[in-house]
């Protein structure tokens, strides 16, 4: 799994596919020049976030001809980027695409769409149904798009799948400037979450969050990485676009898992047995006549 990664903190122009694609290509080329093996963009990096009715207009299949420049570049570097995916059935998904060796290696469709407070994703997107891991030339990866990480299920499945690194693309709006803490409240919470997940799963956790503003809502950046010991090993401070370069070493995974062999000692069958009972009970409850 030894590889050099570039995490991108970009500021896409809302709905401006051509402009954003050009920016992606330039960033990927720079990452190639810097000798990176993998470049990771934030959630919906190709389109911007609060798309509303633009969602429908921007949907593409991951192998759409317009994306050919990225596909071509993926012969030289592995690329993960966010887009509105239009499926064969014409459903729209908030997806993260993994390009490698000139082909679409995987597409993760966001499972936990955010539909509360300022968010309205379920109105425009269909929800993904799977947390599959991806076997890349660089190692085994699991994707959790933003809110996917707030639910334990996806993290747990990736943990059981023995992934080397979790890729967490995000478009997290900045909020909470109260004096009770340092920095934005959402950033503090994200950092706690990322550190805890890397500790629980003993994987690298790679968080790429965007910056910029859309109609008065900022995105909080603070792109960062955690090692398999739960330690932060890189951070882009402030709210400017930028790139965070780091090297992931297999030896770190080995060391962390030797110290505390969490996955070796995990007992998923205990969970499975209880899960069937709990969810079965809930299912019956929800269908009980009242």
């Amino acid at each position: 799994m030894d590889c050099k990664v570039v995490l991108v903190q970009n500021n896409p122009a809302l709905g401006h596919l051509h402009h954003n694609l050009e920016q992606h290509v330039a960033t990927v080329k720079a990452a190639i020049d810097a000798g990176a093996d993998l470049v990771v963009f934030p959630e919906l990096s190709l389109t911007g976030y609060f798309l509303k009715d633009q969602t429908y207009e921007l949907g593409l299949e991951p192998d759409a001809p317009i994306l050919a420049p990225l596909l071509q570049l993926s012969k030289r570097i592995s690329i993960c980027f966010g887009m509105v995916e239009r499926s064969r059935e014409k459903r729209l998904y908030n997806s993260h695409v993994f390009l490698e060796q000139g082909r679409v290696l995987s597409v993760h469709r966001k499972v936990h769409l955010v539909t509360y407070g300022m968010f309205d994703e379920s109105r425009d997107f269909a929800a993904g149904e799977r947390f599959d891991c991806v076997d890349s030339r660089l190692g085994r990866f699991g994707f959790l798009i933003c809110e996917d990480m707030w639910h334990l299920g996806g993290t747990y499945l990736h943990f059981l799948n023995d992934v080397d690194a979790l890729i967490v693309p995000s478009a997290s709006p900045g909020r909470g400037a109260d004096a009770g803490g340092q920095g934005l409240a959402n950033v503090r919470i994200w950092q706690t979450l990322l550190g805890a997940v890397s500790l629980f799963t003993q994987t690298f956790v790679l968080y790429a969050n965007r910056v910029g503003w859309e109609d008065g809502i900022s995105f909080s950046g603070q792109t960062c990485a955690y090692d398999p010991f739960g330690r932060r090993v890189g951070l882009l401070e402030g709210f400017d676009p930028g790139e965070l370069a780091l090297t992931l070493r297999s030896a770190e995974l080995q060391r962390a898992r030797a110290v505390t062999p969490l996955r070796r000692d995990e007992k998923p069958w205990v969970l499975l047995g209880q899960l069937e009972r709990i969810t079965g009970l809930n299912a019956r409850r929800s269908t009980d006549p009242t």
Partner: peptide, 18 residues
Amino acid sequence: DIQPDLVVDLLVRFLREE
């Protein structure tokens, strides 16, 4: 109470960008 330095940084960026 807020962190005025953080708020000023964000609001200046807000004005400039929007």
